[in-house]
């Protein structure tokens, strides 16, 4: 009887000592934790959170660096709907995203699957596919500007080998945007390939082997084992691709400046020109808000499509 009474008492006192110790320990941990975290919180607050909020507020004003400004309500937004430059920019950006994202995701997944087949020279292939990604977009754009040169560029030189007539590429309204898309796809493959490759290596070998035993074909294995296992990674790649394609700027700025005419005008270029050439900061902010909304819609739709795909 006495022993059974003693034991819980001992245990309890021991616990409280530990708890007390843990208490002071936790307190000093919490203090250190906040001290370590505060600089990052301050930095992100000043340079990200405040700007995001400010964009919403600015979009309701006619601010333009001057001393006086006034609230204009949704005036900027209604002006945007009548702005042909903005309409062209929005349309081209959406088109760019709709074409570049699926093609580059499919191509990079295909290459990643190829590289995942225990091939020789994996280091070489990985480097080759990733080099465009580590190269500055300005440098990439400069190189392709020369490739697309109508007079003596590589693109026409290559076509002439097969007897095709030279093309004016960036100067031709029909091919300008397409030529930019090619560069966008070309440069963006590397990151996606590496992410897919890492994910493919995590696909369960057991599942693949048991599918083998069940006599599944290569396509069935891909469709029913590999693809579902890639689900979360697909979503990550999709989001980063959407955000990335909507940001397209350097490429357009160096290669076409939005021309010929407005054929390659994209959103960020339009925002940049409105804000820093015409100094219409309120107007440019409203444009930014619309870009945010379109990105959110894209992410939402992408998510729905992927859900539907994994459920069937």
């Amino acid at each position: 009887m006495s022993t059974t009474l003693e034991r819980p008492a001992l245990a309890a006192s021991g616990k409280s000592a530990v708890a007390k110790d843990k208490g002071t320990l936790t307190r000093s941990q919490v203090r250190t934790g906040w001290a370590l975290l505060t600089p990052a919180l301050l930095h992100s607050g000043i340079f990200i959170v405040i700007p995001v909020v400010a964009v919403l507020v600015l979009s309701l004003t006619d601010y333009s660096f001057g001393d006086t400004w006034s609230w204009v309500g949704f005036g900027n937004y209604s002006d945007l709907f009548g702005d042909v430059d903005f309409q062209a920019a929005l349309w081209h950006t959406v088109l760019y995203a709709l074409i570049v994202i699926p093609i580059s995701m499919a191509l990079s997944l295909a290459v990643a699957i190829g590289l995942n087949q225990k091939i020789r020279g994996i280091g070489f292939f990985r480097t080759a596919f990733y080099i465009p990604t580590v190269t500055a977009t300005v440098a990439v754009a400069t190189i392709w500007l020369w490739i697309y040169n109508p007079g003596s560029g590589l693109a026409n030189g290559f076509l002439s080998l097969f007897g095709f007539a030279p093309n004016r590429w960036l100067a031709d309204p029909n091919t300008a945007l397409g030529s930019l898309m090619v560069v966008g796809i070309w440069q963006g493959l590397g990151t996606k390939i590496i992410i897919y490759l890492a994910a493919l290596q995590g696909v369960s070998r057991d599942l693949l082997e048991s599918a083998d035993i069940d006599g599944a074909s290569r396509w069935q294995k891909f469709r029913n084992v590999t693809l579902p296992a890639l689900g979360p990674v697909q979503f990550f790649v999709l989001i980063t691709s959407i955000v990335g394609t909507f940001q397209v700027f350097d490429l357009v700025y160096v290669m076409t400046r939005g021309g010929p005419g407005s054929e390659t005008r994209v959103l960020v270029l339009d925002i940049y020109q409105n804000a820093f050439q015409d100094l219409k900061l309120g107007y440019a902010s409203a444009e930014t808000v619309i870009m945010m909304i379109v990105i959110a819609v894209f992410i939402g739709v992408g998510r729905l499509l992927q859900r539907a795909d994994t459920n069937d």
Binding site: F47, I50, A275, T288
Partner: peptide, 29 residues
């Protein structure tokens, strides 16, 4: 570190990670 709301703080940084630089261009300037 056992911070109160640590999960929320992590979520905060993950959300910020998704904010494209181009969106904050004008106010950042």
């Amino acid at each position: 570190m056992p911070l109160k709301g640590g999960k929320w703080l992590l979520g905060y940084f993950i959300v910020l990670l998704l904010v494209p630089f181009q969106i904050i261009l004008v106010p950042l300037f």
